[in-house]
Design a protein around this nucleic acid. Structure first.
Lengths: 190, 190
DNA sequence: GCATCAAGCTATTAGTCGTAGCCACCCCCG
DNA sequence: CGGGGGTGGCTACGACTAATAGCTTGATGC
């Protein structure tokens, strides 16, 4: 019996692909195993069950989303950075719905948890968007949460076909970006 | 063998309770049956399988959320209506996470679908929030989507423990409501 | 009072995750 | 170079799930 040469990372990558393809259905060990040309129980030599595998996919998703955000925002500030971040999130959620869905519900993290460091890196991108606006430091955390809520909500509703009406969704995204940009500029400490 | 006297609606209600209690875990027929004092297969006399039951829970959730929104916004306008809507959504999602999660992913609906009429009723509440602002009619649909994205995103991130930092979440909600209110007033057709 | 329909049940099938235990391959080390 | 150990596959199994088939009994209507 020839060895498939699996390694932890390759199992996670295959699981992420499967999760994206079958989203919103839950990830299944048997499908991941089949994708890797291996029988189900073999996976348990590399990952510690379905929960662990899902968690690994979530961590991968957080890291990839953070990379996408940083790349999109490189060299941009203010409205440009905001629009780039929104577009990056929408694109990532549409291309990798399973990975992104896994990232939600990672729950609170401990300080030294590998999840926490990736999550911090990714969430700091939202703070970077605000760097272009001179906000009251006390307001920054609220602004980050508002930003994250709006972009997360928009992307998830879009991918879930939650927008019933017929207007163009790109137009709506631009409108929301402009709305937030105007609000943030109006909130600058004068 | 005494009859449990089940009716479709009571099965849906029990399933909704179970879904809320075990959220974010998926709904299971066996748990619903146990809750009703009945064996699993008996449920199939009342609902058409797990997918159908989940869909019924989702419809119930949409209807209840719409009721909660209308009640909260009664007699309010402008910022008051906006704050009431935000609070109503947050409360509903926290009290009924399973119902609410089921509502996402109902997908696009046909015109005469019972889902569509409840969904329209509920979504019209977001339009009602905007009634207090004199917006350009062309912008209204974008504003509705922005509003829904922000409130949906905030509530889901809150219930998923997605807000890592330590600032008070109620404060952040108030800040976001104020932010949107100021933006909408600034966008009024002068 | 009887017949019919509805609503429960048990038994079964197929599919899931996960564990136990086996076996062969590969590498390292003496 | 040869053996031992660790590694990574496998099959077999147990417990759980949804769902169907078919039976039986209770309730209702004529």
């Amino acid at each position: 019996m020839p060895r498939a040469g699996l390694i932890g990372a390759s199992v996670t990558e295959a699981a992420a692909q499967v999760a994206d393809e079958i989203s919103p259905a839950p990830l299944r060990m048997s499908v991941v195993a089949e994708r890797l040309g291996v029988k189900g129980p073999s996976l348990y030599k590399h990952v510690d069950g379905l929960d662990d595998l899902t968690r690994r996919v979530a961590i991968l998703g957080v890291a990839e989303l953070g990379d996408a955000l940083r790349e999109a925002m490189q060299g941009r500030a203010g409205r440009d950075a905001l629009a780039a971040a929104a577009q990056a999130i929408r694109t990532y959620v549409k291309q990798h719905p399973g990975r992104y869905a896994a990232t939600i519900g990672l729950g609170p993290t401990e300080g030294d948890d590998p999840v926490a460091v990736e999550l911090d890196r990714t969430l700091s991108s939202f703070g970077a968007v605000l760097r272009g606006y001179r906000l009251d430091p006390d307001a920054e955390i609220h602004a980050i949460r508002m930003l994250r809520s709006a972009l997360h909500g928009f992307a998830t509703l879009e991918v879930a076909d939650g927008f019933q009406m017929s207007a163009d969704i790109d137009d709506s995204c631009r409108w929301m970006v402009d709305f937030i940009d105007r609000g943030l500029r109006a909130a600058e400490t004068s």
